[in-house]
Design a protein around this nucleic acid. Structure first.
Length: 497
RNA sequence: GGUCGGAUGGCCGAGCGGCUAGGCACAGCUCUGCAAAAGCUGCUACAGCGGUUCGAAUCCGCUUUCGACCUCCA
């Protein structure tokens, strides 16, 4: 595919991406609820849409990427738990709601940086947009699609469904929804079980509350995204992303609210990433099977055999297509770690490699094959962002790179232009688009000087066939986490674990 | 119960009518003082049963099985 095609959850098919305003792309992604620490499952959408955003930029779009912070409303229960626990210990240590929100927002940002996810252009908070949300609710009431009961406002789904395709995004029929027997808070207030809250009256013990035309309360969960996305991206914008589990009711409700408030559908392309599972089950709070990011990075969790570097996790996630479920496993993560080390090393080797300068390839077949592998990367990305296939091609190219370095492949096997293409492909795809970074930090000069000295001493020992000394140096350094490698050309390189 | 989506080699995972990805692991070889790394070679799978087709992992049907969602979960 020579143009970007993405799978639109709304139409259930791949569609050519055409932005509303040529050259500009608007992307809205449902962000975190900052009442708790982010876990591995949360990492997937943010990494997935980081790729979307990076790729659109690479394609030349000026992207406005909006990702909200949910710091109000529907998380009162967990927030309350957290507060009460602390409160039991000492009233002095009690967390203010704002304190809790700040804490988890910071943690979230820290995690995003470790994952090398680029910052969104705008990161609006729900609490910062109470007025916009109230205005939107007022509009919906004025248009006759919402009603107030006891200080709460509900969206009239039945009325909406009569004139609009309610349930199209999530593929469900309203009649089925009405048969739900589940008991929910405020159910008796609703005219209809399928109705959802736009505004909720706050009970006295509720910690977060705002003044509204309907009394003190807090906004319904869905309205924040509708209010903020339309404010920053317009009443109709290009892409809305989020986890598959948000399709219903969250995104379905967003469509309904915005359609009534603005008179037309809010989103052109809906994109949903699939879940991360563990032992086949979705990783989620309700299943009590989450691995928090801090646990993942430290290895401090009963089921973790080791710590996993953020880049390993990112690579692991990108090795699977975003619409497939991804099952967590130590073995899988460890495989990703080895794989990524190898790929990154090939990249570093490639950047240092020189070329003979011949314009005609000595090995025409290999030259053609390399060219194909490189060009295919674009096709794969254009085909609904198939990062798994891009990575596969980069791996296909690795032996060519290592072969040139190791002498198995002639330096002039590829033409100068193909070699340049190879270098560009690695750096564009691996670094710019997939957003990968090295596992180890840059070494300080001092360490480098010390190691250079040790390497010299060892070289000298080897020259004298004093292998006892040379092996001692290598083994001791290995124990300290520094791996020495004797290269073919006689030089010695090292990696620090 | 309803709706939807999966079941791919030892493990993870692409694929979505012919060209039988890729990674990790494993085995052999080359290189090497020995390692490590790297290179080469080997390893052919698509839950089961029918059907459509010249041809199916890919389409259709049934069965088995796992999962997601069904009102506030990324």
């Amino acid at each position: 595919m020579s143009d970007l095609h993405i799978y639109n959850s709304y139409t259930r098919q791949k569609e050519k991406f055409e932005s509303i305003t040529p050259g500009y792309a608007g992307l809205y992604v449902c962000g975190p609820t900052v009442s708790g620490e982010s876990h591995l499952g949360h990492a997937r959408p943010y990494i997935t849409f980081d790729i979307v955003q990076r790729y659109l930029r690479y394609q030349g779009y000026k992207v406005r990427y909006v990702r909200n912070i949910t710091d109000a409303g529907h998380f009162e229960e967990e927030g309350r738990d957290a507060i009460d626990k602390v409160g039991e210990k000492a009233k002095l240590e009690k967390l203010e709601p704002m304190e809790m929100v700040h804490k988890y927002t910071s943690l979230f940002h820290h995690g995003m940086r470790l994952f090398n996810c680029e910052e969104p252009s705008i990161e609006p908070t729900a609490t910062g947009h109470i007025i916009e949300q109230i205005e939107m609710i007022k509009t919906i009431i004025a248009k006759g699609y919402a009603y107030e009961v006891n200080g709460s406002v509900y969206f009239d789904v039945n009325k909406y469904a009569a004139g609009y395709p309610y349930g199209k995004l999530s593929g469900r029929v309203l009649e089925d929804q009405l048969e739900t027997t589940r008991e929910l808070d405020g159910q008796e207030e609703k005219r209809n079980k399928a109705d959802f809250a736009l505004w909720k009256n706050a009970p006295p013990e509720h910690i977060m509350r705002w003044q509204s035309p309907w009394g003190e309360g807090f906004p319904g969960w869905h309205i924040e995204c509708s209010a903020m996305s339309s404010k920053y991206l317009g009443e109709t914008f290009d892409i809305h992303g989020g986890g598959m589990d948000l399709q219903f009711p969250h995104h379905e409700s967003e469509i309904a609210q915005s359609t009534i408030a603005h008179g037309h559908a809010p989103v052109r392309y809906w994109m949903h990433n699939n879940m991360i599972t563990i032992n086949g089950k979705k990783m989620g709070k309700s299943y009590n099977n989450v691995i928090k990011l801090s646990e993942l990075f430290s290895g401090n969790h009963p089921i973790l055999e080791q710590a996993y570097h953020p880049m390993v996790v990112r690579f692991y996630i990108l090795q699977t297509h975003y619409r497939s479920t991804l099952d967590f496993g130590n073995e899988a993560l460890q495989a990703s770690e080895r794989a990524f080390r190898r790929l990154w090393e090939a990249y570093e080797v490639l950047q240092k490699l020189g070329h003979a300068g011949n314009s005609i390839a000595e090995d025409m077949a290999l030259d053609a094959q390399v060219t194909t592998w490189c060009h295919e990367c674009a096709e794969f990305m254009n085909d609904d962002l198939n990062t798994a296939k891009v990575i596969a091609n980069l791996f296909e190219l690795a032996p060519v790179i290592n072969g040139i370095k190791g002498g198995q492949v002639s330096v002039g096997a590829l033409s100068a232009s193909t070699f340049a293409l190879l270098q560009a492909t690695y750096s564009v795809y691996l670094v710019d688009i997939l957003g990968m970074q090295p596992l180890q930090v840059q070494q300080t000069n001092k360490l480098d000087q010390v190691l250079s000295l040790l390497i010299e001493i060892r070289k000298d020992a080897k020259k004298r066939k004093d292998f006892a000394t040379s092996d001692l140096i290598r083994n001791q350094l290995a124990e300290a986490g520094v791996l020495l490698k004797d290269e073919k050309d006689g030089t010695v390189s090292y990696t620090v674990a």
